[in-house]
């Protein structure tokens, strides 16, 4: 398990996870909620890197190629700098999908989406 490259993103999106739960509506408009699990799942972190060098871009692509949506990994603190975000300990990250890269002359922009999941052993 290789840690995600220690790059600083230019922008982030963050969606906290949720308890698996079902809201069951009643006919008078009220609801009955059933929570199925103590765990909170599906934290999503989107990272945008602007102006990457070729080497930095290769670090991102290389890391994805080694992990894809199968091998979990950790992220370095530089990714979350200044965000105040905290996550359940022992949870690990996987890719939501492949990184999307846009090449314009002299500028490489890559966007990566990661999902936090409970730990599992391969």
């Amino acid at each position: 398990m290789a840690t995600f490259p220690a790059l600083k993103p230019n922008a982030r999106t963050y969606t906290p996870g949720a308890h698996p739960s079902t809201a069951i509506p009643t006919m008078n408009g009220n609801e009955m909620g059933v929570r199925h699990n103590n765990a909170i799942l599906k934290y999503i972190l989107g990272l945008t890197f602007n102006g990457l060098t070729t080497d930095q871009h290769y670090q991102l692509i290389g890391h994805y190629n080694l992990h894809a949506r199968f091998y979990p990994f950790d992220i370095p603190s530089s990714i979350l700098t200044g965000s105040g975000l905290t996550f359940p300990s022992t949870y690990v990250w996987i890719y939501v999908g492949p990184p999307a890269t846009e090449h314009t002359p002299g500028l490489v922009t890559t966007r990566v989406e990661l999902e936090l999941i409970p730990p599992y052993t391969i």
Binding site: T13, P16, A18, G33
Partner: peptide
């Protein structure tokens, strides 16, 4: 009230 989906954050610096 109830949340229908998790809050969506955008970090702009």
């Amino acid at each position: 009230y109830r949340y229908t989906e998790p809050p969506q954050e955008e970090h702009t610096g």
